[in-house]
Amino acid sequence: MRAARRHAALALCAALLLAAGCERERRNFEPPQGQAVAPKVRATVLQPGQPMPPAGAQAPDMPATPYTAGDNAFAVSQGKRLYRWYNCSACHAPGGGGDWGPALSDDKWIYGSRPNDIFLSIVQGRPNGMPSFGGHIPEDQVWQLVAYVRSLSGQLRKDVAPGRSDALQASEPEVARDREQPRPAVPRDGAQNR
């Protein structure tokens, strides 16, 4: 009797694992429901909008979307395409190795390594050259970019990170990268934060 129950539990676990596999490959073409959901966070006191959060406060939590967690392989590959399309690669280099902009494939995170922090960095822009893309990139696409940016330093599961590229790629495929342990960093004095 106990053996039967244990078998049932094992079968349930296997089914759940398999179901997670389905979610990994799901292609969601439906637009997100409702209007824009990102809280209006300001980068400086000079902007109109809600009051600025006090200095040192963490970025507010974003509502969870299917793509926030970065466990959907299609979303990550879309992020990879958008990284090229929206010219992120011009400053951060095609494999995220960094050029005029800071590297995205190392363990240094000047403005935070959590998905929410990366989201806000893209939406608000950052000092020393990172433009604000808020309003220019739909939110679900920003989340796809966030997922891909995290794959550059090996933060995603191996079965989700992209293993191939649409164009020639000189750097190591994202799926083969070692997981870097994110740590805070400060921009160097001067213009470039390599």
Partner: peptide, 10 residues
């Protein structure tokens, strides 16, 4: 055109 690269607008 499901799958087309143009995103929906809200």
């Amino acid at each position: 055109k499901p799958g087309v690269n143009m995103p929906a607008s809200n």
